[in-house]
Simulated assay, not measured.
Amino acid sequence: MKRKDSATKNQKYLAIFLAATMFLSAFLIYFTATGNNNNDVPTPETGEEPITVPFSQVQGKQVHHEFNSIINGLEMSPDGVTNAVYVDFQKTERTPLEAVFGNMQTMNVSFSYGSDVTKRYGASYGNESGFELHQIPEQKISMPANTRVMPYEGYQILDRTNGTYNIWNVVGSPAIIGPIQTVASVIDILEGNATSTTEYDQILSQADPEGSIYQEVVKRTNTSDIPAKQYYRDLKKLDDGSYTQTSIYLDPEPEVNEKIKAYQANSSERGVAYNVTTLDNITKLVISSDFESLYNESALLSI
């Protein structure tokens, strides 16, 4: 019975992460819902078997940008990001988070790449649009044999569905996928013709994302209910098998600091270590314990 209770609690804890990151899996749905039906768009796919193309055979420029954290993803993101998530699938394997985020193989299937994806970043915008970045170490991709290509700033933007839906790829490290307008905006940043978002710089200056399984930033909007102007969270698995979760709040509501102070007072009784720091209008909380205890503590704190 105890084992069953533990599994149930783990599932509830995973639900917290799942609720915060639903937009990642929703991107592909958004792309398919915004297919371009103009008369000048070629007909949908012909049903031909896809072919595998090495990145080296794709003409033009390719993406070359560091991609080891959410910070790197934001460096490639146009302004207006309402929330963003970064996941390292090399670190989700054999952890409870694999049930939420999947792994390198499930990403391969989800996006029909024909190659494993080791890292994933997704940025969401208030107009219900978004894009993703994917690390594909095998440097090859599956695509329709007669894939349409849209040249832009020396890059070859590849039509993933040949006019059926507004889903386009640019290969490289990492690869870009999203609606063509957003993909072009990312290229503009890479080429220095536009600037990336900087609105999360203050909160990220207090973060240490290296080694994280998962990282998230979100800001308060009319549709998001968070107890701060901005919020950052990451999760890491330590060498001894325990976990540490970092939460950073920019301009937190009073109840945030009140809850942290109250539960920190007797946290050792629950087997959870607290480390709390404040700097001007930023509160940073790091809690460490086993996975189940982190769930319990997060539930108490309602974060």
Rank of each mutant, 00 (worst) to 15 (best):
residue 1 M to S: 13
residue 9 K to T: 06
residue 12 K to P: 03
residue 12 K to Y: 11
residue 14 L to K: 08
residue 16 I to Y: 12
residue 17 F to Y: 13
residue 23 F to W: 04
residue 26 A to H: 11
residue 30 Y to F: 15
residue 32 T to P: 02
residue 41 V to Y: 07
residue 43 T to K: 13
residue 48 E to C: 11
residue 55 F to C: 03
residue 56 S to P: 08
residue 58 V to H: 02
residue 61 K to Q: 09
residue 61 K to E: 11
residue 65 H to W: 00
residue 65 H to E: 06
residue 66 E to S: 15
residue 68 N to Q: 15
residue 74 L to G: 05
residue 75 E to T: 07
residue 76 M to H: 02
residue 81 V to W: 05
residue 84 A to Y: 05
residue 86 Y to L: 01
residue 88 D to S: 12
residue 103 N to W: 10
residue 104 M to N: 13
residue 107 M to C: 12
residue 111 F to D: 14
residue 113 Y to G: 07
residue 114 G to H: 09
residue 115 S to W: 01
residue 116 D to L: 13
residue 117 V to C: 06
residue 118 T to C: 08
residue 119 K to I: 01
residue 124 S to D: 10
residue 126 G to I: 10
residue 127 N to R: 00
residue 127 N to P: 00
residue 133 L to T: 03
residue 136 I to S: 07
residue 136 I to K: 04
residue 140 K to P: 00
residue 144 P to D: 02
residue 145 A to F: 05
residue 145 A to R: 10
residue 152 Y to W: 05
residue 153 E to V: 07
residue 159 D to S: 02
residue 162 N to Q: 09
residue 165 Y to N: 08
residue 169 N to S: 05
residue 170 V to Q: 14
residue 170 V to A: 01
residue 181 Q to L: 10
residue 182 T to R: 14
residue 182 T to F: 12
residue 186 V to I: 08
residue 188 D to A: 07
residue 189 I to S: 14
residue 191 E to D: 05
residue 192 G to R: 02
residue 195 T to Q: 15
residue 197 T to P: 15
residue 198 T to P: 07
residue 198 T to S: 12
residue 199 E to Y: 11
residue 211 G to S: 10
residue 222 N to G: 15
residue 225 D to S: 10
residue 229 K to R: 13
residue 235 L to K: 01
residue 239 D to N: 12
residue 241 G to H: 05
residue 241 G to P: 05
residue 245 Q to A: 11
residue 246 T to N: 04
residue 247 S to M: 03
residue 248 I to L: 03
residue 249 Y to W: 13
residue 249 Y to K: 01
residue 249 Y to H: 07
residue 252 P to N: 01
residue 253 E to Q: 14
residue 255 E to A: 14
residue 256 V to S: 00
residue 259 K to E: 00
residue 260 I to Y: 10
residue 266 N to Y: 08
residue 268 S to Y: 11
residue 279 L to R: 09
residue 281 N to S: 14
residue 281 N to V: 02
residue 281 N to R: 09
residue 281 N to C: 04
residue 288 S to K: 08
residue 288 S to V: 08
residue 290 D to Y: 00
residue 296 N to C: 01
